[in-house]
Design a binder for these strands. Sequence first.
DNA 1: ACATAAACGAGACGGTACGTCAGGTCTTTCA
DNA 2: TGAAAGACCTGACGTACCGTCTCGTTTATGT
Lengths: 202, 202, 202, 202
Amino acid sequence: MADPRAPKAPDASRRSERSRRAIFDAALALVGEVGYDKLTIEGIASRAGVGKQTIYRWWPSKAAVLLDAFGAVVDEYDHEGLPDTGDLAADLKFVLRATADEFNDAAWQAPYRALAAAGVNDEELSRTFVARLMEPSTRVYVDRLRAAQETGEVAPGVDLRIATEMLLSPFSQRWLMRTGELTHDYVDTLVDLVLHGLRPRG
Amino acid sequence: MADPRAPKAPDASRRSERSRRAIFDAALALVGEVGYDKLTIEGIASRAGVGKQTIYRWWPSKAAVLLDAFGAVVDEYDHEGLPDTGDLAADLKFVLRATADEFNDAAWQAPYRALAAAGVNDEELSRTFVARLMEPSTRVYVDRLRAAQETGEVAPGVDLRIATEMLLSPFSQRWLMRTGELTHDYVDTLVDLVLHGLRPRG
Amino acid sequence: MADPRAPKAPDASRRSERSRRAIFDAALALVGEVGYDKLTIEGIASRAGVGKQTIYRWWPSKAAVLLDAFGAVVDEYDHEGLPDTGDLAADLKFVLRATADEFNDAAWQAPYRALAAAGVNDEELSRTFVARLMEPSTRVYVDRLRAAQETGEVAPGVDLRIATEMLLSPFSQRWLMRTGELTHDYVDTLVDLVLHGLRPRG
Amino acid sequence: MADPRAPKAPDASRRSERSRRAIFDAALALVGEVGYDKLTIEGIASRAGVGKQTIYRWWPSKAAVLLDAFGAVVDEYDHEGLPDTGDLAADLKFVLRATADEFNDAAWQAPYRALAAAGVNDEELSRTFVARLMEPSTRVYVDRLRAAQETGEVAPGVDLRIATEMLLSPFSQRWLMRTGELTHDYVDTLVDLVLHGLRPRG
DNA sequence: ACATAAACGAGACGGTACGTCAGGTCTTTCA
DNA sequence: TGAAAGACCTGACGTACCGTCTCGTTTATGT
């Protein structure tokens, strides 16, 4: 029973896949070239060889377009859990070093920064951004820490969500606010310091 | 030795203090009312009873106006160091609880969020933002931790800058990305977890 | 064969007739109310209930708008030739008296003056102004004088273009520069004096 | 007895002659370089090395400045009457040919055109323009024609003001509206045609 | 296979804000 | 105290995009 007040419900089954792809490509290319503030719907449409209405039909804002576009890229990566060699510190350092390298890659910077920034001012967008892009990566750390908690490497009773934040937030914050470099040394120091705090006491 | 290529250097000594104040008030009021994206230079000028050119003469962007405006407010606070009762955990919890309350205050939210977001996409702005608004607050934590290190509460050799990040970044990140509430309980748990990691090993 | 350097060619077939009309009406009304110098594109757009871009899309300047607007009004008049009763003097006086009355009408004054003035400083505009508004009225005089030349009322060999100027220029000049009134008496005297000069000699 | 409502009465005796000259020079130079529409008070002030207020103190508009500036130049010419060799046609042709050459000189064009155009839309300005610049040149023609009327070359009873208009208006109009060239041939034809009309009848 | 309805490309439209320019007023500083 | 310098408020400029709204033109079933 459709809401008769609804303005229009475009028929998703007839949607042009070609246009969708072209819009994603254009959006990602443009945000890298001109930055988020100068990214425009008209620019995306023109670069994609698409009518403006085709964008407005399927997305409510340029942030939503970019989120979908970036999400499509991210989804192509496998999201296996973290490795579990039995050495928690080594496992965390290994993955975080790889993540640091990723964040230092220019192709990721522009869209990720843009979306993070847009989310800061737009509550709904930030919820989607967190759920779609941040939560999946966060969860694997929580899972690995839980495994470590079960083997006694991490003290029982520690709030793993907060523990993960202690690990990932300094990392993200440094990058977002440019308060420091994301080097492998930094990652190692951070992991050691955090794990020390999580270790069973006494 | 002035740069002869400089387009024009307005004479700061003739600047109207009345206009400057009115612009700050208008900017802060408007960013709270309509949000950063709908904040416009024209809107600020009109609300402040000021010509647009008076804004363009002294600031390069709306972000710069807002940064100055918010900075002026922040500067009115005393920036004493953290209390030092000898109990590091208690001191940190006391101050962080107060900060949490501050961040939950709507009047602070709008401009701070706006500037953080703008900084994410604008390197130069982010440097100013960090130096002007974040660094002063961060430094007092570093100082308090150094004092604690000297009394042996904190292990020698710990990188205090990173330690401070472990404390403040999860806090900021939660707030910026809305991944959780800033409650007193959260603050207490975070402080305990972090301090445990900093404690001398034994 | 389109000029590829041309910036953009708006599609005239999609043009809104309603907007075009509204712009003409607004331009003519405003030039009468506030005068040419205080006539603004923004004012026209606002009065016409039209976006500024809709004006800039189709006209290069406010003078061009006004020229089209006034031209559209003028085109509604029939441009029959002058009457030919066989009495040249009477025919000229009859038409020139009517023209004098027209020029003394406030509704004609504002746009005509404005365009004449704009043309003085803008060569291209003046060419259009002359071709579109002045030439058609001038031609009918030349034609009538030619007929008179064939009947012998006007001396053969007289340059009819210059003869027409002798008749019309004093008239226009008086009005433009406000050096005198355009009365029926003035018209009669002028016609008599000019025709005397054109009469066959001997 | 000064009008106490008058906002301010600058003391003309203290006026800086140096500034006045510089303003005239700047105005005439600029109107030639950029045209009347792009001539600005700020531009004149800056070029003249003068404060804007110094212009506003002494003139009400840029047209007034230009009128004074051009008038000062014109006043340096002697305004003797027309020559009177006894041959009216020859005398008129001689002077009108010289005038045609003058009007074809670029240095005269810009300010004269500008003032004529400004006068079309501004009644008060046009009165001053006519009285200051046009009337003196016109009067010498009227005087010469009166002399001719007394010798019988021109029919008694002819309105000399209108006769002069028949001679000068076609000339000015051609130039203002660019409807034709001001050649010596043109001048000769015009003079002959007009004089024929003025000749005693019978 | 073909009718038909939707999505599509294109882009004109009424708007808002941009950043710039100049107008005319006012104040400060200097000679 | 007149003049230079220039900051100020005002308001129009011409441009860029916004989001909405037609226009024909594909395209993709569904009978």
